[in-house]
Design a protein around this nucleic acid. Structure first.
Lengths: 158, 158
DNA sequence: GACGAAATGATATAATATAACACTTGAAGA
DNA sequence: TCTTCAAGTGTTATATTATATCATTTCGTC
């Protein structure tokens, strides 16, 4: 069994660096400006593998000395979600970083209620089940939300 | 192809009646009180096959002359969701009636962005894909949210 | 009828999100 | 280089969604 969630002692700096690099690539490929504000918000989101709310981001920005207001944060979030660099977790009203922003994907989010971490998975069986179900009823899919709450392997066994 | 969504000219009164009867059964089976307030809220939710927000419900109640406040509505919603009589659609912050409250099910919601209707489906392939994916990563599922947005067959073809 | 638990009423406020308009910045052409 | 204009950000106000808290009422059980 491979745990989707990052190992306890992993080098998180590398996660952040890699995410930033990928984000810059994607932004460039889309002719989109990865401004300072957007980079700050993106980096804050990547500070952990948990989902973070807009107002938590706002507090962090203000703690850093940035004079930000809610619209600033929501705009950055909108931009990042639009490029697929982060995902919104509907059931938490929170955001978290995507580690595969390069390709379109129908992601599923596993959310641990104990440690708060989120892991994204891409599962072909699930994707095809969704598409087959939609096809069977003549529904034209534009967006899907699949969020699974419970206990991650670490929290379920310790 | 069978459309999940109700036919245009269907007798909606029968939907409501049947839903009410089922809800009463479920409440009784759970030794739960289906009070007047809860019945009102439940009936309002069943007025359409769309999802309705808490504050829309509040407005409707007040229009009916009931002196209700937000907590009243949220309590009724909590009760109804708890018994599985209604479902919350996370991506809409709204609620809609379940037509199979008798059995546990991992439901999927198809949401039409054009007409606003919601249809619930239960799909074994999808359920088993979710469970298989969770098993593969040692995740213990407690709740799942599957919401699919797009165009229903009617709206996609007309 | 008295009691206690459950439900509801009422007030206040927290948490999440957006509208509207002003100002700044930066890329692209003149 | 200067101008211009669209995109981005700042700022203020407010809309929308949700809950905490305590008082009162209702209802089944004794």
């Amino acid at each position: 069994m491979t745990d989707l969630f990052p190992e306890k002692g992993h080098d998180h700096g590398r996660c952040i660096d890699s995410a930033l690099r990928q984000a810059e690539d994607v932004a460039e490929a889309n002719n989109a400006r990865f401004t300072d504000m957007r980079r700050r918000v993106f980096t804050l989101i990547w500070q952990s593998h948990k989902a973070i709310t807009a107002y938590e981001l706002l507090d962090s920005l203000q703690a850093e000395g940035v004079r930000a207001q809610p619209p600033t944060v929501y705009r950055a979030l909108e931009f990042l979600v639009g490029l697929g660099l982060i995902h919104r977790i509907e059931s938490l009203n929170a955001y978290f970083g995507c580690d595969m922003p390069h390709h379109e994907h129908l992601g599923q989010y596993f959310i641990c209620r104990n440690c708060g971490r989120v892991a994204e998975a891409v599962n072909d069986d699930m994707s095809s089940a969704v598409h087959a179900a939609a096809r069977a009823v003549g529904f034209r899919i534009e967006a899907t939300t699949i969020e699974i709450k419970g206990l991650c392997h670490d929290c379920a066994t310790h």
